[in-house]
C-alpha cells in the first residue's frame, strides 16, 4: 500500500522477512503482534502501534498516537517525532528479546508505566515542555528509561529512581541512537554527547511487602 488513510491493523503479525512501506496515516494498532517484519511509515501513526509486538522493526517518520508499543516484548520502534500518552506501558524483556522504543521528540503522560523490561529512549528534540508527562514509570519493575534533558524529571513516583547517565549507561543506548540517527538523518554523536537521565525501578518486586497471608 502506498498511501493509507486510517486503515486499522496494517501489518499485524508480520513475520521475519516481510516488509511494509506506508505513506499517509495508517490507523490504529498498526504492527500489532509484529513477529519479525519491518514497517516504515512516511507520516504519522495513530494509537496502539506495535501492540504486544514480539520481534521486528517499526520506523515512523512522523509522530505516534497513544499507547505506543503496549506490552511489547521484543523488536524496535523508532519515532521521528513525539509520542502520545501511555507509550511503552508494560514493556518487558525476556532472554535474548529486549524491546527498544526510541522517541525523537517528547512523550505524553504515563510513559513506561508497569515497565518490566526493555529500553525507552526519549530524545526530547523540538520539545518545548517537559520531555515526559505525569506519572512516568508508575509501577515500573524492570527495564530503563533514558531521557535526554538538562534537568532531572520532577514528580516521579516512588517506584522509580533517577540518576544522571554515566558513559557506561550511554553505551547501552548508543547503538539504538545511532540507528535512530541513520533512519532520520541526524548526527548520532551530537545526540549522545548531550545530558541524559536514567530512570530505573527502585526494586524488581515492588509489591512484595504489600500483603499479609490471611
Amino acid at each position: 500500500m502506498t498511501t493509507c488513510c486510517g486503515e486499522r491493523f496494517l501489518g499485524a503479525g508480520l513475520k521475519t522477512g516481510e516488509t511494509l512501506h506506508l505513506s499517509g496515516t495508517p490507523g490504529n494498532a498498526m504492527g500489532a503482534y509484529l513477529d519479525g517484519g519491518e514497517i516504515t511509515v512516511q507520516g504519522n501513526v495513530q494509537d496502539a502501534v506495535g501492540d504486544t509486538m514480539n520481534h521486528g522493526t517499526i520506523i515512523v517518520h512522523g509522530s505516534a498516537g497513544d499507547a505506543l508499543g503496549y506490552a511489547m516484548r521484543g523488536g524496535e520502534i523508532y519515532v521521528r517525532g513525539s509520542a502520545g500518552y501511555r507509550a511503552g506501558i508494560h514493556m518487558k524483556e525476556y532472554e535474548s528479546q529486549k524491546p527498544v522504543l526510541v522517541i525523537g521528540g517528547g512523550a505524553g503522560s504515563f510513559l513506561g508505566e508497569y515497565m518490566a523490561g526493555g529500553l525507552i529512549v526519549v530524545l526530547s528534540m523540538d520539545c518545548a515542555d517537559s520531555p515526559a508527562g505525569n506519572f512516568t514509570g508508575t509501577g515500573m519493575h524492570g527495564g530503563k528509561i533514558f531521557i535526554r534533558a538538562q534537568q532531572p524529571l520532577e514528580h516521579l513516583p516512588a517506584q522509580v529512581s533517577q540518576h544522571a547517565a554515566t558513559p557506561e549507561d550511554l553505551q547501552e543506548i548508543a547503538a539504538y541512537v545511532t540507528q535512530f540517527a541513520q533512519h532520520f538523518s541526524f548526527d548520532a554523536n551530537e545526540l549522545l554527547q548531550s545530558q541524559f537521565y536514567v530512570l530505573c525501578p527502585n526494586a524488581t518486586n515492588p509489591y512484595h511487602q504489600l500483603y499479609v497471608a490471611n
Binding site: 516484548r73 506501558i89 508494560h90 518487558k92 524483556e93 525476556y94 532472554e95 528479546q97 508505566e113 508497569y114 518490566a116 523490561g117 509501577g139 519493575h141 524492570g142 524488581t204 518486586n205 515492588p206 509489591y207 512484595h208
Partner: peptide, 11 residues
C-alpha cells in the same frame, strides 16, 4: 516470557 524472579504484574 519474562525473566526468572521478576514479578508478573497484570495492571
Amino acid at each position: 516470557m519474562i525473566p526468572e524472579g521478576s514479578d508478573a504484574i497484570s495492571p
